[in-house]
C-alpha cells in the first residue's frame, strides 16, 4: 500500500512538473502592455454613443456581453437550487447556534440600514462609476445575512428570497424579450442613451443592473443562510 501511495505521489509530481513547464513556456510568449485589442478598441470608440454608459466596463457587461451576464445570474440561481437540493432538510428539526454577544447584535442592527443604502447606491451608479449590480448585490446580501449571524434563531425568510430571485431573473429576460417583440435582437438596449454621465442615462441598463443586484443579493443571502443552517445542525 505504501508503494501505491508513493506511486501516486510520483505521478502527481510529474503531472505538476509538466504543467509547470507548459506554463513557463507560455510565460515567454505572453505580451504585456501591448494587447492586440481588436474588440477592445472598437468598443472603447463606439460605446459612448451606442450605449451611453460612462463606465465602459458596464457597457460590455450589460450591453455588448449582456447575454453572459444573464447566464451568470442563471449559474448563481442553479448553484443556489442545487445547494438547496443538497442541504435542504425536512421541516420540523430546527437547531440553531446560540445568540451572539451584545456588540455583534448592536453592530448588526446599526449596519443594516447603512449597508442597504450603500448597496443600492452602488447598484444605481453602476453605469457611471466602478461598481454595479454584482458588487451592490453582494453588499445587499451582507446586509440581510448579518442579522442572521447575530441572531441565528431568527431564520432568513426563504420564501421571500425565492420570490425576489425568481422575479428579478424574469425581469432581466423580459427586458431582453421586449426588444425582441419590437423587432430588434434579444437584449438590445432600449429607451435611447440619454446624456452621458448622468444618473438617468444608458437606457435600460440601470434597470438591468437593478435586476442583477436584487437577484445576486437574494441568491447569495439564500446560499449563506442554507450553509449556516446546515452548519448549525452539527
Amino acid at each position: 500500500m505504501r508503494q501505491y501511495n508513493s506511486m501516486r505521489r510520483l505521478t502527481s509530481l510529474l503531472f505538476l512538473a509538466g504543467l509547470g513547464l507548459l506554463l513557463a513556456a507560455i510565460l515567454q510568449r505572453l505580451n504585456f502592455g501591448q494587447p492586440p485589442m481588436i474588440v477592445g478598441d472598437a468598443i472603447n470608440a463606439a460605446a459612448p454613443a451606442q450605449v451611453g454608459a460612462a463606465n465602459l466596463v458596464t457597457s460590455v457587461v450589460l450591453a455588448y456581453r449582456g447575454f453572459d451576464t444573464l447566464l451568470e445570474l442563471t449559474i448563481l440561481f442553479t448553484a443556489a437550487t442545487a445547494a438547496g437540493l443538497a442541504l435542504g432538510r425536512e421541516p420540523g428539526d430546527r437547531l440553531a447556534d446560540p445568540e451572539a454577544g451584545p456588540i455583534v447584535r448592536a453592530g448588526a442592527d446599526l449596519f443594516f440600514p447603512l449597508l442597504l443604502v450603500v448597496g443600492l447606491y452602488i447598484i444605481f451608479h453602476g453605469h457611471l462609476t466602478p461598481g454595479g449590480g454584482f458588487q451592490g448585490g453582494v453588499i445587499l446580501a451582507a446586509a440581510f445575512f448579518m442579522p442572521q449571524l447575530a441572531r441565528p434563531a431568527s431564520r432568513l425568510e426563504h420564501r421571500m428570497t425565492t420570490l425576489i430571485e425568481g422575479l428579478a431573473g424574469a425581469t432581466f429576460i423580459l427586458i431582453g424579450l421586449l426588444a425582441l417583440f419590437e423587432g430588434e435582437a434579444f437584449l438590445t438596449p432600449l429607451l435611447g442613451v440619454g446624456t452621458l454621465g448622468t444618473l438617468l442615462s444608458a437606457g435600460t441598463l440601470p434597470m438591468l443592473y437593478l435586476a442583477v443586484g436584487l437577484k445576486v443579493g437574494a441568491e447569495l443571502a439564500g446560499l449563506l443562510a442554507s450553509l449556516a443552517e446546515m452548519g448549525a445542525e452539527e
Partner: peptide, 18 residues
C-alpha cells in the same frame, strides 16, 4: 481593454457560485 474586465467579473461570480 474593457472586455477582459467584464469577462473576469463574470468568471468571478461563476467561481463564487461553484
Amino acid at each position: 481593454d474593457p472586455v477582459p474586465q467584464a469577462l473576469v467579473l463574470t468568471a468571478i461570480v461563476i467561481a463564487l457560485g461553484v
